[in-house]
Every structure is written in structure tokens, then in C-alpha cells.
Design a protein around this nucleic acid. Structure first.
Lengths: 356, 356
DNA sequence: TGTCGTTGACAAATCGATTTTGGTCAAGGA
DNA sequence: TCCTTGACCAAAATCGATTTGTCAACGACA
């Protein structure tokens, strides 16, 4: 259909007065060919607008030129839910761009319940984002023998070298240091319960920092499923404690609305009575009122790193250890001690300088 | 690589004691085959875990089993920006699922500046979302002779039957009727300037309704580029007018933060002093404070309709006219006249019933 | 002069499926 | 008995590129 009438290697061969073999060699720099012949063939191909048919090429070479991107699945919840997080969108977008630089295209894997159905995956490799314990995605890909790179560590195998990880320790530490420098003394942490190496590392880093600074550990592990209610409840109870926390670090975007609701309901203001910061940046943080301090995980850099790693793996090269992507703290109004008419100012600064 | 050792049609043929031809026919229901033979072959294929190699199949049949999804490009702005809108995320997710029901996979097209580079698109067809005037995406696809379906009308050719459109007229009307029934008398409209049939239709529907009801037209066309500033400015000036508007319909998600900022800055409360509603639903509307009344465009249904249309087009069938997808009004706190302690209630209702 | 190595190009095999074309065998009719 | 006819299956062609194997021409060198 789309193929009808496309110029083939045979057309080029005929036009240049050589054999298809020679054309292939000339364009791919493979065989021994007279430089003049090569140049002539290249010109001819150019003139005819010849583009190798990826399918035919793939059939022979065994490479599809397609990479799979597998975002986290909600096993139970409305499955389109996960995708609405804008970190994942940025990641998906960046990933398509990163792969495209070398001609590969990215295919999205739909959230399928039974991993059986997706067997015939026309893909060379795959990127799995935020793997969790006993992740069926990894199992399926292993069964299909599809080379895989993960973004964030696989909790089952945290040392797997084919992995791009963000510097979670540094992330939490940065957040805590920042809140500390703004005067916070009792900092609480909300994290998703279990699942994924990422939240484990958050918890761990938080505990370490708290111990080192002689602070109490105020961790609440929440369900991502009923995110609003669980965050609301947890924050409500946190705010009733005496002494009351004076800062909250929110580990996942989905806990934000519940948290803000509980805070408002308790009659507290942000940042006046309580500093707030989020572990994942995005539109939601920028456009919240007040704008929320957040950590940019740099999905664009993660994407590039993951693509490079996957290409290396596909080429059969040796692993060189995990890639760690640094994080960037975006300070916004929600964590600035200065009170008063700062709102407008905060917005302006935010929109002008700090944001991508 | 991923192909190594995969069982081929030949393996199945050998195991079942027939020819590859017969296996192909048996599994695809093509030729005339003894039902018992067919069953035996199917069992054998099953046992061996045989899955047709999509590349080989594609080479012969001319079908790739891959469809392209092309979300709107920001020509100037940071390109990952567009993708962070969660309507597009839901759409992308739903699209992968819709196509997957018939074995097709969806490939994301990266936002490329020069449309030249993407020539060798290994794709059967394409979905273009929100086409705008002289859209380079449509031009590129036409040049490549790739059958295309658009989501929302092509402003250049609004009657193109290969199109899934949301019922914009109904959308705006529904919003206006709702606000009207809540007592609003001067309703303003913020829309993106030019570009895309969608905003044109919004403007048109708004004007029609206003005339019919003898209301003033209060339209502001804003730049999507500096969305925050332009919305902020526009709303500020709207709110200074006397008589002051008592309701605002926001035509695009990106105008929300600027609008809310201007409203708060003017010392007005929502919904107490001003009713607010948004034309596109999403997380942003649900988790805003207060939660915003919005229109759900039902991207899931759009996706299914688009997939069906594209398949039809690929099969060479005749167009049957555009598909119109109805919209659903999600009423939330931002447009409810009832004042007072409704916030908690509003949230609860919202999370429980109204939301997907 | 004859042999060998090198260069430059091409024919043919290959990838794994689908599609087209044949071919065999049994049943049924003349 | 011979000829159709239909049912069932297989051989071969095909898709468009890459890879392998072959071969002629030419110089260099013994």
C-alpha cells in the first residue's frame, strides 16, 4: 500500500547500470568498490529518492529498527492512569527523539494484563521504566529473549549493569538539605509503599540523612492506588502530631492533591506554616498554587543514556556499569521561607529562569 | 538477535508432516484444508510456540503492522512541552491499546523539525492529532503516500471524511448551558489564537450561542506560546471591565494556571465570585484547587474510532463520513454556585463517581 | 610465459513468510 | 473405460534487501 511504486534497489541498479549487489555495497560501505562507481551510485540513489525498505532489510539482517518502550502498568487501576503522569510523557517524547537520531523508532507497549498476548513483538530491544518486584514486563521480555535496559534499578537485581538510574540518594539529600536550609526542623516523607527500587532508595536515603542529623524519621508509606485518600489521611494525622512537622517531602506526584487538600483543610498555609517539596517535577508542580519545589529527574538525559546503553547491548558489547543521571532541584514558592506578597514574584522567577 | 532460534514456519511444517504452504494456509484460514489437518497444524504450532515473524510477513504482504501516531508539534517552544498535556497521554495510551486489539503496534513520531529526515517510515498508516493550517505533518505523510486519519478536522479540508472529530459545538454549548444554569450571565471565553480547526469551532459555537441568548461575546484569543503570561494578562483585563464577567470558559489546558493566578490576584474566589470551566479534562482539572469543571473529550473513544477508520482506509474501503465523538461534562466545584463547606464534599463526589 | 594475488563487480542464495500455480487422487458421470 | 470435477496439498515464485561465493581482468613477479 504505502509501498506501491517505491523505488527499489533494482531501480537504482538499472539506472546506474550496475547490479543490485553493487548498489547495496556502495550505499552501505560494505564490499570493495571503485570509489568512482560508488559515487555514481550514490548520486543515482539520491536522484531517485531511494530509501531502503526497512522491512526487507530487517528480514535479512535480523534487525527491526524498532525499540519498545514499556511504561509502568497499573495492574488494577484504570490503566491509562499511569500514562497521565507527565514525567512519563516527557520520557516517552525524549525517548523517541533519542532513538530517532540513529534511525530507530519507538513503539509503545500497551498495558496488557496477560503478558501472553504480546508475544510477537517486532522489536529489537526494550526499555522498561520503573521496574518493580517480580515485574511481569521483565519476565515477558526475558522469555522472548529481547535485550532490555531498565530506567531505575530492578529491585530483584539492583546491580544489573544494563540500567539507567537517577541519583536517588542525592535527590533526597538535596531536598532535605534545601528544606533544612530554609529552616525546617521536622521533615516528613511520603513514599509509595513497596514496589520498585526507587521508593526503597528514597526511604533509605531519608533514614540515613535523618540519623546523621539527629532528626526523627517521619515516614509514611502510602498506597498509589487510592492516592488521594491515603495521602489525605496520612497528612491529616501527621499534622495533628505535636510537635507538628514543618515540612513535607512528597515522593510521588499522585500524592500531591491529597496532601494539599489535607493541608488546606487543617487551615495551614504553604509555605507559611509548612514547607512542601515534591520528588518529581512536572507541569503539576509548576502550575500548582503555590508552585511546588520539585526535583527534575531529567528524563531527557535518562532517555539518551538508555538509548546508548540499549544500542551497546544490541551490539553485543560488554556492560560498563549502570549510568547514573544527576538530578536538578527546582526551588519554587512552596519551600521558600520568605512570606508576604511573594506570590507574584515567585511565579515570575519561576517562569523566567528556573524552568526548562 | 532476538530472532535467534525462533521456530519458523518450516519447523512447524516438519513437525506436522506437511508443507510450509499448508501451515500458512492453516493458520491464516486461507486455502482449502481438511479440518483435521488444520487442527493438527494448529496444535503443533501451539506446542512449538510458533509465532509468525512479522518482518517476513510484512515483506510479502506489504503491511508492517505498525501505525504512526503523530502528536502536535510545537514549532518553536521546547518540543517536549506538547506531550506533557495529559489529554495527549491518554490518547497515546488508548491508541496503543486500540491498535493492539488487532495486532498492530503504535509508533510515536518524534517532533522533528525538518520533515525530510523521517522519510523511511516503516509504517502502514498514521494518525495525526489536532492538525493545523498547512500542517507539515500532513504534507510529509502525503508525500510519503501514507494513508492518514486525523483526530479533529483538518482546517485546510474540513470535510475530509477520514477524520474523527469531537463534537465541539456540543461541547461549548454544554459548557455554556451549564454555566448559564448555575446563574452565570456574562461568560467569557479564552481560546488559542488561530491554528487548528478546533479553536475556530469553539469560537464559532460560542458566538452562535451568545447571539441566540442575547449575550455579549467576550472572546480572548491567546498565544499558546507564552500561555501563562497571555492568560494572566487577558483575565486581568477581563476582570477589570464593568460589568465584570461572572464566568470564564478556558479553551486549553495551558491557560489554566495563568487564569487562576489572575483570578486569585484580583482577590476573587472560585466559584464564589467567578465560575470557571475548562474545555479539556485531565489530571490538572481534577487536582486543581478547587477542582475544575471540565469536558471529557473521551480520548479512549476517539482512539478506537480512529483505529477503525484507519484500518478501513488501509483496506481500501470507501469513506463513510467523519466520526463524531460526543463529549461528557464533568461538573466539579469550580462551577457550582453553592458556596460554603462544599470543598470536601466536592472532592469526595468527584473522586467517587464522576471520574473515570 | 605462467602463476598468483588483488581488485571490482555480479549471480545466486538467503531471510521467513504469503500467494500463485500445479498436481495428485478419489468420486461421479457419460 | 475415460473424462471431469472438486478436494486437498505441495512446489515454486515473490517481497526487497543483504551476504556469500564466484569470476574475469589486470599487474606483479618468478
Amino acid at each position: 500500500m504505502a509501498v506501491a511504486g517505491r523505488t527499489t534497489i533494482r531501480d537504482v541498479a538499472a539506472a546506474a547500470g550496475v547490479s543490485p549487489t553493487t548498489v547495496s555495497h556502495a550505499l552501505n560501505g560494505k564490499g570493495r568498490i571503485d570509489p568512482r562507481t560508488r559515487a555514481r551510485i550514490q548520486r543515482t540513489a539520491e536522484r531517485l529518492g531511494y530509501q531502503a525498505n526497512r522491512i526487507a532489510r530487517g528480514l535479512r539482517s535480523g534487525r527491526y529498527g524498532v525499540q519498545a518502550l514499556w511504561l509502568p502498568i497499573e495492574q488494577d487501576a484504570a490503566s491509562s492512569d499511569a500514562l497521565t503522569l507527565d514525567y512519563y510523557m516527557r520520557l516517552a517524547s525524549a525517548m523517541t527523539k533519542a532513538f530517532f537520531t540513529r534511525g530507530d523508532v519507538v513503539m509503545l507497549i500497551p498495558p496488557v494484563g496477560s503478558s501472553e498476548k504480546l508475544v510477537p513483538l517486532p522489536t529489537d530491544g526494550a526499555i522498561v521504566v520503573d521496574p518493580y518486584d517480580d515485574d511481569p514486563r521483565l519476565a515477558a521480555l526475558r522469555r522472548l529473549d529481547i535485550p532490555t535496559v531498565t530506567i531505575e534499578r530492578n529491585p530483584i537485581d539492583p546491580d544489573d549493569p544494563w540500567c539507567v538510574a537517577s541519583d536517588t540518594g542525592d535527590e533526597i539529600e538535596t531536598l532535605l538539605e534545601h528544606l533544612d536550609s530554609e529552616g525546617a526542623e521536622r521533615i516528613a516523607l511520603l513514599v509509595p509503599e513497596a514496589m520498585g527500587a526507587w521508593s526503597k532508595e528514597q526511604r533509605e536515603a531519608y533514614r540515613t540523612w535523618s540519623q546523621r542529623h539527629g532528626r526523627d524519621s517521619l515516614t509514611r508509606s502510602l498506597s498509589l492506588h487510592s492516592a488521594f485518600e491515603s495521602a489525605d489521611r496520612a497528612v491529616r494525622s501527621l499534622l495533628m502530631a505535636r510537635p507538628r512537622p514543618d515540612a513535607i517531602v512528597i515522593g510521588a506526584e499522585r500524592f500531591v492533591p491529597g496532601t494539599m487538600h489535607a493541608v488546606a483543610d487543617a487551615g495551614l498555609s504553604v509555605p507559611g506554616d509548612l514547607l512542601v517539596a515534591v520528588a518529581v517535577d512536572g507541569n503539576h508542580a509548576r502550575s500548582s498554587t503555590p508552585p511546588l519545589t520539585a526535583v527534575d529527574l531529567q528524563p531527557e538525559r535518562q532517555a539518551v543514556a538508555a538509548a546508548e546503553l540499549l544500542w551497546r547491548r544490541l551490539d553485543g558489547e560488554e556492560p560498563q556499569g549502570q549510568r547514573t543521571i544527576p538530578v536538578i532541584l527546582k526551588v519554587r514558592e512552596s519551600s521558600r521561607r520568605q512570606p508576604g506578597g511573594a506570590r507574584a514574584t515567585g511565579r515570575a522567577i519561576d517562569a523566567g529562569a528556573a524552568d526548562l
